[in-house]
Structures are given as C-alpha cells and as structure tokens.
C-alpha cells in the first residue's frame, strides 16, 4: 500500500513550508521530492506529528546519475546528479511513503568533496547504519551523524564503489584488485 492523496501533501506543506519541491503521484511508488536541507524537518514531522505516523525507516538509497559512456551521455536528458531515496513505513497505518532529494555529485562540483545532506539519525535511530552504508558505498556525507565511518568496506578503502565512475583499485595491501 502506498500513501496517496493530495490532502496529506497539503498538511505537509502547511507544517513544513516550502520543503516539498516536486512530486509524482502517478509513479508505481508515488514519491515526493523535498529540498535536501529540509529533510530532517520533513522526516521529523512525518515520524512524530503527521496524522499517519511514519515510525519506521526501511531503506536509504543513493542513486548516482552519471552516464560514463560518452555516446550514451549525449542522449540522456538529465544532468549528472545524485538522488537520495528514503523509504518510510507506518506500522500503524501499514502504508509506505517515498521521499526523494536531489544532491550534486560532488559538493560545489569539486571532485573529491562529498555532497552533504543532514542525517536523520535523530528521527529514527535505525538510520545510523543505513547512512553509514550509503556513505561507505556511495560517498554521501551525512551532517550531524554521530559516528559516520565505513561499515562494509575496510576502513582504509579508497573510493565509493556504487558511484558510476568508480574504478576498482589495482592493489589493496598486496592483493590484486583487477
């Protein structure tokens, strides 16, 4: 089941003004896009004050939109960016909600500077590990996260494997990479 209905969006707009910047209610999983800097306000309202309490965070995903093949890149209609997707779930109403937020691939387009988004750990404690995983694999810096370090890859791993332009290292502590 999925959260539908414009009435709910109006309430969100009234509670957290100007946070919703886009929506697609006709998609397979209807989603709303929020401004990255307002993500905590939106999530806090959804989890604590909204008529439907989204008390559980299921998943955080970062999608790297970058076409590395120059032939295909000439045809795509979008600009390179990172898309954050939050899947929320309400255990009482048994409905889900999808939040999206757009980030640049690099902060201020300086390669190596990680894009930033506020951490939602203060809303759901379970977000801690999910955000660590997204940081580890996709290279997103969650500001305000209590303990942001790699979780799946070794601590001294270089690069962010789920980025489209990632290249496997040739050597890791004497182990051949590719």
């Amino acid at each position: 089941m999925t959260m539908r209905g414009p009435g709910f969006l109006d309430q969100l707009d009234a509670a957290v003004p100007a946070a919703v910047v886009g929506r697609n209610l006709e998609a397979i999983d209807p989603w709303i896009e929020v401004a990255p800097e307002r993500i905590v306000d939106v999530c806090a309202w959804l989890a604590k004050s909204s008529p439907v309490r989204f008390d559980s965070l299921q998943c955080i995903t970062a999608i790297d939109w970058l076409e590395t093949d120059p032939k295909k890149a000439a045809k795509v209609t979008w600009q390179p960016h990172t898309e954050m997707v939050y899947h929320l779930w309400s255990t009482s109403a048994r409905v889900s909600l999808v939040l999206k937020a757009k980030l640049p691939r690099w902060k201020s387009d300086v390669p190596g500077e990680l894009p930033e988004i506020p951490s939602v750990c203060g809303v759901w404690r379970g977000a801690n590990w999910h955000e660590r995983e997204v940081y580890d694999l996709s290279g997103i810096w969650f500001t305000g996260h209590p303990d942001l370090r790699r979780i799946l890859c070794p601590e001294d791993w270089e690069g962010y494997p789920l980025r489209k332009d990632y290249e496997m290292p040739l050597d890791y502590h004497g182990i051949r990479g590719r």
């Binding site: 965070l57 299921q58 255990t91 759901w124 404690r125 379970g126």
Partner: peptide, 8 residues
C-alpha cells in the same frame, strides 16, 4: 517502540 524505530 525500539523495534519499530530500528526498522526491525
């Protein structure tokens, strides 16, 4: 509450 918050 703890179970829900952690997404168990």
């Amino acid at each position: 509450e703890l179970a829900i918050e952690y997404g168990c």
